[in-house]
Amino acid sequence: MTIEQIATRLAEHCRNEKFTQAQTELYADDAVSIEPYATPDFEKETKGLPALKEKDRKFNAMVEARYGSTVSAPLIAGNSFCFTLTMDVKMKGKDRQKFSELCVYTVKDGKIIAEQFFM
C-alpha cells in the first residue's frame, strides 16, 4: 500500500472506531506508540504490536459509552502523515467528554511503524 492508501484507510477505521482492526491491518509487528506523557494507566511509550493491541483493549475497557468520533482529512509529507481525531466518550466513573488530539504516523515498507499523539 502507498502512504496515501494507508492514511486514507486508517482515517476510515478511526472514523468507524475500528482501532483494533486498523492495528491488525496496517501496523508493523514492531510498531511503537508514543503518548504526550505517562499516566497511571498508560506508559509514555508502548512497543510492539501485541502491546499496542493490549493498550487498545485496556482503553476500551475504560470506556462506558461512545458518542462518535471525527477524523480530519490526512495530511501527508514524505513517509509521515497526520490527522486530528476527536472522540466523544464517557469514561467509567467520569462525565462525558471530548478528547481531541493530533495523531502523527510514520510509515516504512507499507506499514505504520510509529504513532505519536499530541493533545
Score class of each variant (00 low, 15 high):
Leu75Asp: 08
Pro74Thr: 11
Arg15Met: 03
Leu10Gln: 00
Phe19Gln: 11
Gly48Tyr: 00
Phe42Lys: 14
Gln116Glu: 12
Phe117Gly: 07
Val107Arg: 00
Glu101Pro: 09
Tyr37Val: 10
Gln5Tyr: 15
Asn79Ile: 01
Val107Lys: 00
Asp109Asn: 08
Ala73Asn: 12
Phe42Gly: 11
Thr86His: 06
Ile113Ala: 07
Thr84Ser: 10
Lys18Met: 13
Thr2Ala: 02
Ile76Thr: 00
Lys55Ala: 12
Glu35Trp: 11
Lys98Arg: 06
Lys47Gln: 04
Ala22Tyr: 01
Lys90His: 07
Ser69Phe: 01
Leu10Tyr: 02
Ile113Leu: 09
Leu26Cys: 02
Glu35Gln: 13
Glu101Ala: 15
Arg9Lys: 13
Ser100Pro: 07
Ile113Asn: 06
Asp56Val: 12
Ile3Met: 00
Gln23Phe: 12
Asn79Pro: 03
Asp95Leu: 13
Asp56Asn: 15
Thr70Tyr: 00
Glu101His: 14
Asp109Tyr: 04
Phe99Leu: 12
Phe99Asp: 07
Lys18Glu: 12
Lys44Val: 05
Lys53Asn: 11
Pro50Thr: 03
Phe99Lys: 06
Phe118His: 12
Ile34Cys: 06
Ala28Arg: 08
Ser72Val: 13
Tyr37Ser: 12
Val71Pro: 00
Lys55Ser: 03
Ser72Tyr: 12
Val71Phe: 00
Glu4Pro: 07
Glu43Gly: 10
Asp41Pro: 14
Gly78Lys: 07
Arg96Thr: 03
Asn16Cys: 10
Phe83Thr: 01
Arg57Asp: 10
Glu54Pro: 01
Thr39Tyr: 01
Tyr105Cys: 02
Val71Gly: 01
Gly93Leu: 05
Met119Phe: 15
Cys103Glu: 07
Glu115Ala: 08
Thr86Pro: 04
Val32Phe: 04
Glu101Trp: 12
Ser80Phe: 10
Asp109Thr: 05
Ala77Trp: 15
Pro36Lys: 05
Lys47Ala: 04
Pro50Val: 01
Lys18Thr: 10
Thr24Pro: 13
Lys111Gln: 08
Met62Trp: 02
Ala51Cys: 03
Met119Ile: 11
Glu64Ala: 07
Ile3Val: 05
Cys103Asp: 13
Glu12Gly: 10
Asn60Glu: 14
Met119Cys: 12
Phe99Val: 08
